[in-house]
Nucleic acid binder design. Structure first.
Lengths: 128, 128, 128, 128
DNA sequence: GTGGTCTAGACCACC
DNA sequence: GTGGTCTAGACCACT
Protein backbone atom coordinates (compact mmCIF):
# COMPACT_ATOMS: atom_id res chain seq x y z
CA UNK A 1 0.00 0.00 0.00
CA UNK A 2 2.76 2.46 0.83
CA UNK A 3 6.04 2.60 -1.04
CA UNK A 4 9.16 3.82 0.68
CA UNK A 5 12.32 4.92 -1.08
CA UNK A 6 15.04 4.51 1.51
CA UNK A 7 17.58 6.22 -0.71
CA UNK A 8 15.54 9.34 -1.31
CA UNK A 9 16.78 12.57 0.21
CA UNK A 10 13.29 13.19 1.56
CA UNK A 11 12.97 11.65 5.02
CA UNK A 12 11.14 8.37 5.29
CA UNK A 13 8.67 9.72 7.82
CA UNK A 14 7.72 12.51 5.41
CA UNK A 15 7.17 10.02 2.64
CA UNK A 16 4.84 8.11 4.91
CA UNK A 17 2.96 11.26 5.94
CA UNK A 18 2.49 12.36 2.32
CA UNK A 19 1.25 8.98 1.16
CA UNK A 20 -1.06 8.52 4.11
CA UNK A 21 -2.55 11.96 3.44
CA UNK A 22 -3.01 11.01 -0.18
CA UNK A 23 -4.83 7.84 0.75
CA UNK A 24 -7.05 9.65 3.20
CA UNK A 25 -7.84 12.36 0.66
CA UNK A 26 -8.76 9.73 -1.93
CA UNK A 27 -11.05 8.03 0.53
CA UNK A 28 -8.99 4.88 1.00
CA UNK A 29 -9.75 5.11 4.70
CA UNK A 30 -13.27 5.38 5.96
CA UNK A 31 -13.93 7.98 8.60
CA UNK A 32 -12.80 6.83 12.02
CA UNK A 33 -11.35 3.65 10.55
CA UNK A 34 -8.37 2.32 12.45
CA UNK A 35 -4.98 2.88 10.87
CA UNK A 36 -2.47 0.03 10.78
CA UNK A 37 -0.67 -0.18 14.12
CA UNK A 38 2.77 1.34 14.48
CA UNK A 39 4.45 -2.00 14.90
CA UNK A 40 2.71 -3.93 12.13
CA UNK A 41 3.08 -1.22 9.50
CA UNK A 42 6.70 -0.65 10.49
CA UNK A 43 7.32 -4.34 10.03
CA UNK A 44 5.59 -4.51 6.67
CA UNK A 45 7.42 -1.43 5.39
CA UNK A 46 10.72 -2.59 6.77
CA UNK A 47 11.32 0.60 8.74
CA UNK A 48 11.85 1.26 12.42
CA UNK A 49 8.73 1.64 14.57
CA UNK A 50 10.07 4.97 15.83
CA UNK A 51 10.10 6.31 12.29
CA UNK A 52 6.47 5.37 11.90
CA UNK A 53 5.69 6.81 15.29
CA UNK A 54 7.07 10.12 14.11
CA UNK A 55 5.02 10.00 10.91
CA UNK A 56 1.83 9.21 12.80
CA UNK A 57 2.56 11.94 15.34
CA UNK A 58 2.76 14.43 12.48
CA UNK A 59 -0.55 13.25 11.01
CA UNK A 60 -2.08 13.64 14.43
CA UNK A 61 -0.64 17.14 14.82
CA UNK A 62 -2.35 18.04 11.55
CA UNK A 63 -5.67 16.85 12.89
CA UNK A 64 -5.96 13.96 10.46
CA UNK A 65 -6.01 11.18 12.99
CA UNK A 66 -6.29 10.70 16.72
CA UNK A 67 -4.56 8.17 18.90
CA UNK A 68 -6.24 6.21 21.64
CA UNK A 69 -3.56 4.71 23.87
CA UNK A 70 -4.12 1.04 24.28
CA UNK A 71 -6.63 0.93 21.47
CA UNK A 72 -5.15 2.24 18.23
CA UNK A 73 -5.11 5.20 15.87
CA UNK A 74 -8.17 6.37 14.02
CA UNK A 75 -8.77 8.65 11.05
CA UNK A 76 -10.44 11.76 12.43
CA UNK A 77 -13.96 12.61 11.44
CA UNK A 78 -13.12 15.63 9.30
CA UNK A 79 -9.81 14.40 7.91
CA UNK A 80 -10.96 14.33 4.30
CA UNK A 81 -12.51 17.76 4.56
CA UNK A 82 -9.31 19.21 5.97
CA UNK A 83 -7.33 17.81 3.07
CA UNK A 84 -9.80 18.98 0.44
CA UNK A 85 -9.80 22.44 2.00
CA UNK A 86 -6.02 22.50 1.86
CA UNK A 87 -6.08 21.51 -1.81
CA UNK A 88 -8.56 24.24 -2.55
CA UNK A 89 -6.31 26.84 -0.91
CA UNK A 90 -3.37 25.68 -2.96
CA UNK A 91 -5.45 25.78 -6.12
CA UNK A 92 -6.32 29.39 -5.34
CA UNK A 93 -2.66 30.25 -4.84
CA UNK A 94 -1.89 28.61 -8.16
CA UNK A 95 -4.49 30.69 -9.97
CA UNK A 96 -3.17 33.81 -8.29
CA UNK A 97 0.36 33.07 -9.45
CA UNK A 98 -0.80 32.40 -13.01
CA UNK A 99 -2.57 35.74 -13.04
CA UNK A 100 0.53 37.52 -11.82
CA UNK A 101 2.73 35.88 -14.42
CA UNK A 102 0.35 36.79 -17.21
CA UNK A 103 0.08 40.32 -15.89
CA UNK A 104 3.86 40.52 -15.84
CA UNK A 105 3.85 39.89 -19.58
CA UNK A 106 4.38 36.16 -19.88
CA UNK A 107 2.88 34.95 -23.14
CA UNK A 108 0.26 32.25 -23.25
CA UNK A 109 2.57 29.95 -25.21
CA UNK A 110 5.38 30.40 -22.70
CA UNK A 111 3.08 29.67 -19.77
CA UNK A 112 1.66 26.61 -21.49
CA UNK A 113 5.13 25.19 -22.06
CA UNK A 114 5.96 25.80 -18.41
CA UNK A 115 2.89 23.95 -17.21
CA UNK A 116 3.29 21.05 -19.62
CA UNK A 117 6.83 20.55 -18.45
CA UNK A 118 5.69 20.54 -14.83
CA UNK A 119 2.98 18.01 -15.57
CA UNK A 120 5.42 15.68 -17.26
CA UNK A 121 7.76 15.86 -14.29
CA UNK A 122 5.08 15.43 -11.71
CA UNK A 123 2.91 12.79 -13.29
CA UNK A 124 5.95 10.95 -14.56
CA UNK A 125 7.37 10.25 -11.12
CA UNK A 126 3.90 9.78 -9.77
CA UNK A 127 3.40 6.03 -9.74
CA UNK A 128 2.17 5.43 -6.24
CA UNK B 1 1.22 53.26 -24.35
CA UNK B 2 -0.22 52.96 -20.87
CA UNK B 3 -3.87 52.51 -20.16
CA UNK B 4 -5.36 53.71 -16.90
CA UNK B 5 -8.68 52.63 -15.49
CA UNK B 6 -9.69 55.40 -13.13
CA UNK B 7 -12.63 53.43 -11.87
CA UNK B 8 -10.66 50.36 -10.89
CA UNK B 9 -10.30 49.58 -7.22
CA UNK B 10 -6.58 49.09 -7.73
CA UNK B 11 -4.70 52.36 -7.16
CA UNK B 12 -3.66 54.27 -10.30
CA UNK B 13 -0.02 54.36 -9.30
CA UNK B 14 0.00 50.58 -8.99
CA UNK B 15 -1.53 50.26 -12.44
CA UNK B 16 1.28 52.43 -13.77
CA UNK B 17 3.94 50.45 -11.94
CA UNK B 18 2.59 47.14 -13.23
CA UNK B 19 2.39 48.31 -16.82
CA UNK B 20 5.82 49.93 -16.75
CA UNK B 21 7.27 46.72 -15.41
CA UNK B 22 5.54 44.81 -18.14
CA UNK B 23 6.98 47.07 -20.81
CA UNK B 24 10.45 46.86 -19.34
CA UNK B 25 10.23 43.08 -19.14
CA UNK B 26 9.14 42.88 -22.77
CA UNK B 27 12.04 45.08 -23.83
CA UNK B 28 10.01 48.09 -24.80
CA UNK B 29 12.66 50.23 -23.12
CA UNK B 30 16.31 49.84 -24.00
CA UNK B 31 18.67 49.66 -21.11
CA UNK B 32 19.38 53.06 -19.66
CA UNK B 33 16.89 54.65 -21.97
CA UNK B 34 15.23 57.66 -20.48
CA UNK B 35 11.69 57.22 -19.21
CA UNK B 36 9.08 59.82 -20.08
CA UNK B 37 9.27 62.72 -17.66
CA UNK B 38 6.82 62.90 -14.79
CA UNK B 39 5.09 65.98 -16.19
CA UNK B 40 4.70 64.87 -19.78
CA UNK B 41 3.50 61.37 -18.93
CA UNK B 42 1.14 62.71 -16.28
CA UNK B 43 -0.31 65.07 -18.87
CA UNK B 44 -0.71 62.40 -21.52
CA UNK B 45 -2.36 60.00 -19.07
CA UNK B 46 -4.52 62.70 -17.55
CA UNK B 47 -3.43 61.94 -14.01
CA UNK B 48 -1.91 64.03 -11.28
CA UNK B 49 1.90 64.41 -11.49
CA UNK B 50 2.12 63.34 -7.83
CA UNK B 51 0.54 60.02 -8.71
CA UNK B 52 3.18 59.48 -11.33
CA UNK B 53 5.86 60.59 -8.96
CA UNK B 54 4.73 57.89 -6.55
CA UNK B 55 4.75 55.26 -9.29
CA UNK B 56 8.26 56.19 -10.39
CA UNK B 57 9.46 56.21 -6.80
CA UNK B 58 8.18 52.67 -6.42
CA UNK B 59 9.96 51.55 -9.60
CA UNK B 60 13.10 53.12 -8.24
CA UNK B 61 12.70 51.38 -4.90
CA UNK B 62 12.52 48.11 -6.77
CA UNK B 63 15.78 48.85 -8.52
CA UNK B 64 14.19 49.10 -11.96
CA UNK B 65 15.12 52.69 -12.68
CA UNK B 66 17.29 55.41 -11.29
CA UNK B 67 16.70 59.13 -11.26
CA UNK B 68 19.41 61.55 -12.17
CA UNK B 69 18.47 64.99 -10.82
CA UNK B 70 18.48 67.55 -13.56
CA UNK B 71 18.72 64.94 -16.24
CA UNK B 72 15.83 62.50 -16.00
CA UNK B 73 14.94 58.94 -15.08
CA UNK B 74 16.64 55.97 -16.69
CA UNK B 75 15.89 52.28 -16.82
CA UNK B 76 18.58 50.63 -14.74
CA UNK B 77 21.08 48.34 -16.39
CA UNK B 78 19.77 45.12 -14.88
CA UNK B 79 16.08 46.01 -14.85
CA UNK B 80 15.09 43.35 -17.34
CA UNK B 81 17.11 40.72 -15.52
CA UNK B 82 15.46 41.59 -12.23
CA UNK B 83 12.03 41.20 -13.77
CA UNK B 84 12.90 37.95 -15.51
CA UNK B 85 14.32 36.64 -12.24
CA UNK B 86 11.13 37.57 -10.46
CA UNK B 87 9.08 35.79 -13.08
CA UNK B 88 11.31 32.78 -12.81
CA UNK B 89 10.78 32.68 -9.03
CA UNK B 90 7.05 32.83 -9.49
CA UNK B 91 7.25 30.11 -12.13
CA UNK B 92 9.13 27.95 -9.62
CA UNK B 93 6.47 28.56 -7.01
CA UNK B 94 3.86 27.59 -9.56
CA UNK B 95 5.62 24.34 -10.38
CA UNK B 96 6.01 23.65 -6.67
CA UNK B 97 2.29 24.13 -6.10
CA UNK B 98 1.43 21.89 -9.04
CA UNK B 99 3.68 19.20 -7.66
CA UNK B 100 2.07 19.47 -4.25
CA UNK B 101 -1.43 19.25 -5.68
CA UNK B 102 -0.53 16.19 -7.74
CA UNK B 103 1.20 14.63 -4.77
CA UNK B 104 -1.92 15.29 -2.72
CA UNK B 105 -3.83 13.10 -5.13
CA UNK B 106 -5.36 15.58 -7.59
CA UNK B 107 -5.96 13.87 -10.90
CA UNK B 108 -4.38 15.13 -14.13
CA UNK B 109 -7.77 15.87 -15.60
CA UNK B 110 -8.86 17.85 -12.55
CA UNK B 111 -5.68 19.89 -12.61
CA UNK B 112 -5.97 20.56 -16.33
CA UNK B 113 -9.49 21.87 -15.92
CA UNK B 114 -8.31 24.14 -13.14
CA UNK B 115 -5.54 25.61 -15.27
CA UNK B 116 -7.67 26.04 -18.39
CA UNK B 117 -10.19 27.95 -16.36
CA UNK B 118 -7.48 30.21 -14.99
CA UNK B 119 -6.09 30.89 -18.44
CA UNK B 120 -9.47 31.88 -19.77
CA UNK B 121 -9.98 34.31 -16.93
CA UNK B 122 -6.53 35.80 -17.12
CA UNK B 123 -6.03 36.08 -20.86
CA UNK B 124 -9.59 37.12 -21.33
CA UNK B 125 -9.31 40.28 -19.29
CA UNK B 126 -5.80 40.88 -20.53
CA UNK B 127 -6.24 43.43 -23.28
CA UNK B 128 -3.67 46.01 -22.31
CA UNK C 1 -38.55 35.40 41.94
CA UNK C 2 -37.11 35.83 38.47
CA UNK C 3 -35.96 39.14 37.07
CA UNK C 4 -36.06 39.77 33.36
CA UNK C 5 -34.19 42.51 31.57
CA UNK C 6 -36.07 43.01 28.34
CA UNK C 7 -33.44 45.37 27.00
CA UNK C 8 -30.52 43.04 27.49
CA UNK C 9 -28.82 41.64 24.37
CA UNK C 10 -29.04 38.17 25.92
CA UNK C 11 -32.30 36.47 24.89
CA UNK C 12 -35.06 36.44 27.47
CA UNK C 13 -35.43 32.67 27.40
CA UNK C 14 -31.73 32.31 28.21
CA UNK C 15 -32.12 34.67 31.15
CA UNK C 16 -34.94 32.49 32.40
CA UNK C 17 -32.95 29.29 31.91
CA UNK C 18 -29.93 30.72 33.74
CA UNK C 19 -31.97 31.93 36.68
CA UNK C 20 -33.98 28.74 36.95
CA UNK C 21 -30.75 26.75 36.99
CA UNK C 22 -29.41 29.01 39.67
CA UNK C 23 -32.47 28.49 41.82
CA UNK C 24 -32.37 24.74 41.34
CA UNK C 25 -28.67 24.66 42.21
CA UNK C 26 -29.30 26.66 45.38
CA UNK C 27 -32.08 24.30 46.41
CA UNK C 28 -34.96 26.71 45.95
CA UNK C 29 -36.91 23.85 44.42
CA UNK C 30 -37.30 20.58 46.21
CA UNK C 31 -36.70 17.51 44.15
CA UNK C 32 -39.67 16.64 41.98
CA UNK C 33 -41.43 19.77 43.07
CA UNK C 34 -43.69 21.19 40.43
CA UNK C 35 -42.45 24.23 38.56
CA UNK C 36 -44.80 27.17 37.99
CA UNK C 37 -46.93 26.52 34.95
CA UNK C 38 -46.03 28.13 31.65
CA UNK C 39 -49.10 30.37 31.64
CA UNK C 40 -48.94 31.63 35.20
CA UNK C 41 -45.20 32.34 35.14
CA UNK C 42 -45.44 33.99 31.72
CA UNK C 43 -48.16 36.21 33.08
CA UNK C 44 -46.27 37.12 36.24
CA UNK C 45 -43.10 37.90 34.29
CA UNK C 46 -44.94 39.75 31.57
CA UNK C 47 -43.44 37.70 28.77
CA UNK C 48 -44.94 35.66 25.99
CA UNK C 49 -45.88 32.09 26.96
CA UNK C 50 -43.96 30.86 23.91
CA UNK C 51 -40.78 32.36 25.34
CA UNK C 52 -41.32 30.49 28.56
CA UNK C 53 -42.14 27.34 26.65
CA UNK C 54 -38.75 27.62 24.93
CA UNK C 55 -36.96 28.14 28.24
CA UNK C 56 -38.63 25.12 29.84
CA UNK C 57 -37.88 23.01 26.76
CA UNK C 58 -34.22 23.91 27.15
CA UNK C 59 -34.23 22.96 30.83
CA UNK C 60 -35.85 19.68 29.88
CA UNK C 61 -33.22 19.06 27.18
CA UNK C 62 -30.56 19.50 29.82
CA UNK C 63 -32.21 16.89 32.00
CA UNK C 64 -33.13 19.34 34.75
CA UNK C 65 -36.86 18.88 34.60
CA UNK C 66 -39.45 16.62 33.03
CA UNK C 67 -42.88 17.46 31.78
CA UNK C 68 -45.85 15.29 32.55
CA UNK C 69 -48.62 16.08 30.09
CA UNK C 70 -51.79 16.97 31.86
CA UNK C 71 -50.03 17.29 35.19
CA UNK C 72 -47.24 19.83 35.05
CA UNK C 73 -43.45 20.17 34.98
CA UNK C 74 -41.29 18.74 37.72
CA UNK C 75 -37.68 19.23 38.74
CA UNK C 76 -35.94 15.96 37.92
CA UNK C 77 -34.52 13.81 40.69
CA UNK C 78 -30.87 14.48 39.94
CA UNK C 79 -31.18 18.08 38.79
CA UNK C 80 -29.14 19.50 41.63
CA UNK C 81 -26.43 16.89 41.18
CA UNK C 82 -26.18 17.68 37.47
CA UNK C 83 -25.70 21.35 38.22
CA UNK C 84 -23.20 20.76 40.98
CA UNK C 85 -21.29 18.41 38.69
CA UNK C 86 -21.25 21.07 36.00
CA UNK C 87 -19.95 23.62 38.47
CA UNK C 88 -17.30 21.19 39.62
CA UNK C 89 -16.12 20.69 36.03
CA UNK C 90 -15.85 24.40 35.53
CA UNK C 91 -13.98 24.73 38.81
CA UNK C 92 -11.52 22.10 37.58
CA UNK C 93 -11.02 24.00 34.35
CA UNK C 94 -10.40 27.13 36.38
CA UNK C 95 -7.76 25.44 38.51
CA UNK C 96 -6.17 24.02 35.38
CA UNK C 97 -5.96 27.46 33.81
CA UNK C 98 -4.48 28.96 36.97
CA UNK C 99 -1.83 26.24 37.03
CA UNK C 100 -0.98 26.89 33.40
CA UNK C 101 -0.68 30.61 33.93
CA UNK C 102 1.58 30.13 36.94
CA UNK C 103 3.64 27.56 35.07
CA UNK C 104 3.98 30.03 32.21
CA UNK C 105 5.68 32.40 34.61
CA UNK C 106 2.87 34.67 35.78
CA UNK C 107 3.71 36.04 39.19
CA UNK C 108 1.42 35.50 42.18
CA UNK C 109 0.81 39.22 42.51
CA UNK C 110 -0.13 39.54 38.85
CA UNK C 111 -2.55 36.62 39.10
CA UNK C 112 -4.11 37.97 42.29
CA UNK C 113 -4.78 41.32 40.67
CA UNK C 114 -6.37 39.56 37.72
CA UNK C 115 -8.72 37.59 39.94
CA UNK C 116 -9.65 40.48 42.20
CA UNK C 117 -10.61 42.50 39.17
CA UNK C 118 -12.78 39.66 37.89
CA UNK C 119 -14.52 39.28 41.25
CA UNK C 120 -15.33 42.95 41.39
CA UNK C 121 -16.86 42.86 37.94
CA UNK C 122 -18.82 39.67 38.51
CA UNK C 123 -20.12 40.20 42.03
CA UNK C 124 -20.74 43.84 41.27
CA UNK C 125 -23.28 43.24 38.57
CA UNK C 126 -24.64 40.24 40.41
CA UNK C 127 -27.65 41.62 42.20
CA UNK C 128 -30.31 39.18 41.11
CA UNK D 1 19.14 26.69 34.53
CA UNK D 2 16.64 23.95 33.78
CA UNK D 3 15.61 21.34 36.29
CA UNK D 4 14.48 17.93 35.16
CA UNK D 5 12.56 15.46 37.26
CA UNK D 6 13.27 12.10 35.69
CA UNK D 7 10.75 10.38 37.90
CA UNK D 8 7.87 12.67 37.06
CA UNK D 9 5.03 11.22 35.03
CA UNK D 10 5.22 14.22 32.73
CA UNK D 11 7.63 13.46 29.88
CA UNK D 12 11.08 14.97 30.10
CA UNK D 13 10.74 16.73 26.75
CA UNK D 14 7.58 18.44 27.94
CA UNK D 15 9.32 19.62 31.09
CA UNK D 16 12.02 21.12 28.92
CA UNK D 17 9.50 22.78 26.61
CA UNK D 18 7.58 24.30 29.52
CA UNK D 19 10.67 25.65 31.24
CA UNK D 20 12.16 27.02 28.05
CA UNK D 21 8.88 28.80 27.33
CA UNK D 22 8.91 30.19 30.81
CA UNK D 23 12.41 31.53 30.39
CA UNK D 24 11.61 33.05 27.04
CA UNK D 25 8.45 34.66 28.43
CA UNK D 26 10.39 36.14 31.34
CA UNK D 27 12.97 37.55 28.95
CA UNK D 28 15.85 35.29 29.92
CA UNK D 29 16.67 35.00 26.24
CA UNK D 30 17.21 38.02 24.09
CA UNK D 31 15.48 38.05 20.75
CA UNK D 32 17.32 35.94 18.19
CA UNK D 33 19.80 34.81 20.81
CA UNK D 34 21.20 31.36 20.21
CA UNK D 35 19.82 28.58 22.38
CA UNK D 36 22.22 26.06 23.89
CA UNK D 37 23.04 23.38 21.32
CA UNK D 38 21.25 20.05 21.47
CA UNK D 39 24.35 18.17 22.45
CA UNK D 40 25.70 20.51 25.10
CA UNK D 41 22.37 21.03 26.86
CA UNK D 42 21.63 17.31 26.69
CA UNK D 43 24.98 16.68 28.33
CA UNK D 44 24.47 19.28 31.06
CA UNK D 45 20.96 18.02 31.82
CA UNK D 46 22.01 14.41 31.71
CA UNK D 47 19.41 13.44 29.15
CA UNK D 48 19.66 11.93 25.70
CA UNK D 49 20.23 14.35 22.79
CA UNK D 50 17.20 12.88 21.04
CA UNK D 51 15.01 13.91 23.94
CA UNK D 52 16.26 17.44 23.64
CA UNK D 53 15.85 17.31 19.89
CA UNK D 54 12.18 16.50 20.42
CA UNK D 55 11.75 19.35 22.88
CA UNK D 56 13.38 21.85 20.55
CA UNK D 57 11.32 20.57 17.61
CA UNK D 58 8.18 21.29 19.62
CA UNK D 59 9.35 24.82 20.45
CA UNK D 60 10.04 25.33 16.78
CA UNK D 61 6.61 24.03 15.82
CA UNK D 62 5.12 26.62 18.15
CA UNK D 63 7.04 29.37 16.38
CA UNK D 64 9.20 30.18 19.40
CA UNK D 65 12.54 29.38 17.82
CA UNK D 66 13.98 28.57 14.44
CA UNK D 67 16.75 26.17 13.57
CA UNK D 68 19.53 26.92 11.15
CA UNK D 69 21.19 23.63 10.19
CA UNK D 70 24.89 23.82 10.72
CA UNK D 71 24.58 27.02 12.68
CA UNK D 72 22.33 26.62 15.70
CA UNK D 73 18.88 27.40 17.06
CA UNK D 74 17.67 30.90 17.67
CA UNK D 75 14.80 32.42 19.62
CA UNK D 76 12.41 33.80 17.04
CA UNK D 77 11.78 37.51 16.84
CA UNK D 78 8.23 37.46 18.17
CA UNK D 79 8.63 34.60 20.64
CA UNK D 80 7.92 36.71 23.72
CA UNK D 81 4.90 38.33 22.10
CA UNK D 82 3.47 34.94 21.19
CA UNK D 83 3.80 33.78 24.78
CA UNK D 84 2.33 36.94 26.27
CA UNK D 85 -0.57 36.71 23.83
CA UNK D 86 -1.16 33.13 24.89
CA UNK D 87 -1.18 34.16 28.55
CA UNK D 88 -3.65 36.90 27.82
CA UNK D 89 -6.00 34.45 26.11
CA UNK D 90 -5.83 32.12 29.07
CA UNK D 91 -6.49 35.00 31.46
CA UNK D 92 -9.60 35.85 29.46
CA UNK D 93 -10.79 32.26 29.65
CA UNK D 94 -10.22 32.32 33.38
CA UNK D 95 -12.32 35.46 33.83
CA UNK D 96 -15.04 33.93 31.66
CA UNK D 97 -15.13 30.83 33.82
CA UNK D 98 -15.29 32.85 37.02
CA UNK D 99 -18.23 34.79 35.65
CA UNK D 100 -20.04 31.58 34.75
CA UNK D 101 -19.48 30.07 38.16
CA UNK D 102 -20.77 33.16 39.91
CA UNK D 103 -23.75 33.31 37.60
CA UNK D 104 -24.46 29.66 38.40
CA UNK D 105 -24.84 30.65 42.03
CA UNK D 106 -21.43 29.96 43.54
CA UNK D 107 -20.93 32.18 46.57
CA UNK D 108 -18.01 34.58 46.81
CA UNK D 109 -16.66 32.73 49.84
CA UNK D 110 -16.81 29.38 48.06
CA UNK D 111 -15.02 30.77 45.01
CA UNK D 112 -12.36 32.39 47.14
CA UNK D 113 -11.62 29.12 48.90
CA UNK D 114 -11.34 27.39 45.55
CA UNK D 115 -8.84 29.91 44.26
CA UNK D 116 -6.77 29.99 47.42
CA UNK D 117 -6.48 26.23 47.32
CA UNK D 118 -5.34 26.37 43.71
CA UNK D 119 -2.74 29.01 44.48
CA UNK D 120 -1.32 26.96 47.31
CA UNK D 121 -1.02 23.90 45.08
CA UNK D 122 0.46 25.76 42.15
CA UNK D 123 2.86 28.09 43.88
CA UNK D 124 3.83 25.40 46.31
CA UNK D 125 5.24 23.05 43.71
CA UNK D 126 6.55 25.97 41.74
CA UNK D 127 10.19 26.21 42.73
CA UNK D 128 11.86 26.34 39.34
C1' DG E 1 31.09 22.16 15.29
C1' DT E 2 25.73 22.38 14.18
C1' DG E 3 20.93 20.22 13.40
C1' DG E 4 18.36 16.14 11.27
C1' DT E 5 17.30 11.47 10.65
C1' DC E 6 17.25 6.59 11.39
C1' DT E 7 17.87 2.27 13.91
C1' DA E 8 17.74 -0.97 17.78
C1' DG E 9 16.09 -2.04 21.93
C1' DA E 10 14.07 -1.10 26.23
C1' DC E 11 10.35 0.28 29.55
C1' DC E 12 5.83 2.00 30.95
C1' DA E 13 0.65 2.58 31.03
C1' DC E 14 -3.58 1.34 29.23
C1' DC E 15 -7.21 -2.04 27.71
C1' DG F 1 -2.11 -6.38 22.05
C1' DT F 2 -1.94 -0.79 21.69
C1' DG F 3 0.53 3.89 21.83
C1' DG F 4 4.24 6.80 24.29
C1' DT F 5 8.71 7.77 25.86
C1' DC F 6 13.56 7.37 26.54
C1' DT F 7 18.26 5.85 25.58
C1' DA F 8 22.41 4.71 22.92
C1' DG F 9 24.73 5.07 18.99
C1' DA F 10 25.26 5.83 14.18
C1' DC F 11 25.25 8.53 9.79
C1' DC F 12 24.43 12.52 6.84
C1' DA F 13 24.60 17.47 5.22
C1' DC F 14 25.80 21.96 6.07
C1' DT F 15 29.29 25.84 7.65
Amino acid sequence: MLEIDKFSRVPIYEQIVAQMERHIRLGAFLQEEALPSVRTLALSLGVNPNTLQKAYAELERRGLCISVPGSGRFVSRNAQDLLLLRSREKADELLCLMRELIEAGMQQQELKALIDEAEKQAFGKDKI
